[in-house]
Design a protein around this nucleic acid. Structure first.
Lengths: 211, 211
DNA sequence: GTCTATAAATAGATAGAC
DNA sequence: GTCTATCTATTTATAGAC
């Protein structure tokens, strides 16, 4: 007869996942140095020692969040490859980045912080993933040029023009609430508007003949 | 006969200015929480106690750097007002922001971090200055529309489209050095190219009729 | 896998002499 | 204005019982 073996002593949706989620929020809000493992564990409703059991250190936990983040973006971008029309591909890439920022709310803030930090916490593997993201944008531009649909453009400028505004839009949301400006209070922007605008601007840059 | 009074016991270019500069660098590189007052004082070649003498705390020092930063941007933007031609004014504003980022190398990273932090360290007065910056962009757009030179556009989108790429360009410089991509190693971007590109894109957005 | 207790280091801040 | 010594709180991390 099968005995009722206790499988999981007390944790419900997996203490590891809970810690991961709480840490992502904390790192986004306060940065790597500013976040505090005691508070992360508390927010996760998990004992602090579990953090060191699942991840080997605060740095290890952070590195895992970074890798997960960039892996997801890279995957979402890779999924746009079937698009054979250059313009459609660019549109899909803009949307991919924006949707990812929506799906992982910690992602814009953490990315901005990591940029400011010069990638100090980014390990080798993650560096490669980030390089791959740049490569994907570059190849989309390159293909469009080869198909005589885009004029030659610096891929880095294209990337800055897409990622910059998108990240800023999501990341500045909390701050905009603090700046009492009738302007953007009156004109609430939606994710859809931002996507459409950045898509339009990116294509204006790539398809325009001027300059 | 005039006695040789000792005016300044031992400090050369003003210990306050030295601390300020060292702190700006440290906060840019490591963030508010990540920076360390001991190391700031050491980098400044000034005794740590002086930091508390000139500024009342680590937070006070940081707040002063923030205010100085946004004041400078606001001033540089205000200086573009004489431009009566709407397009020229936008061009001047783009250049103003980029030149400021060059003049104060700590400015892009700190701004990105403050965005990520939701403006947690920004005091009332500085909030007002930031609001003024947004206002200036908005009024430039508004004036252009009134003069029938621009089509109506959301000022926030315009701002994101300018500040996003410019900040990202400067702030990602250290990280780009770490990402081994043939792409942007082959195509080194200059500040001038970035300014020209962002100016062009901003005006394409504002002057274009398509939607 | 989970929890308590605690080690060990670091950081912000100040007192007080000069 | 400058410097030394130090206090105190906080924080990462681990040992070890269950």
């Amino acid at each position: 007869m099968k005995r009722a073996v206790r499988r999981r002593p007390r944790q419900e949706p997996g203490s590891k996942a809970r810690l991961f989620a709480a840490a992502a929020t904390a790192f986004a809000a306060r940065g790597f140095a500013g976040a505090n493992v005691d508070r992360i564990a508390e927010a996760a409703g998990v004992n602090k020692a579990m953090l060191y059991y699942h991840f080997k250190s605060k740095a290890g936990l952070y590195a895992e969040i970074l890798r997960d983040m960039f892996e997801s973006v890279a995957a979402r971008l890779a999924a746009t490859t079937p698009q054979t029309d250059p313009a459609e591909r660019i549109r899909a890439m803009v949307e991919a980045i924006a949707r990812e920022a929506e799906a992982r709310p910690h992602f814009p803030a953490i990315w901005l912080r990591e940029i400011a930090e010069g990638g100090a916490h980014v390990d080798k593997g993650t560096i490669a993933i980030i390089g791959g993201i740049l490569q994907q944008v570059a190849s989309a531009v390159h293909d469009g040029v080869a198909a005589k649909r885009f004029r030659p453009a610096n891929p880095l400028l294209v990337q800055l023009g897409i990622v910059g505004p998108v990240l800023m839009f999501f990341a500045t949301a909390p701050m905009r609430r603090r700046v009492p400006s009738q302007l953007h209070l009156a004109t609430q922007l939606t994710t859809e508007q931002v996507i459409a605008h950045v898509q339009r601007v990116a294509l204006l840059t790539l398809e325009g003949k001027a300059r």
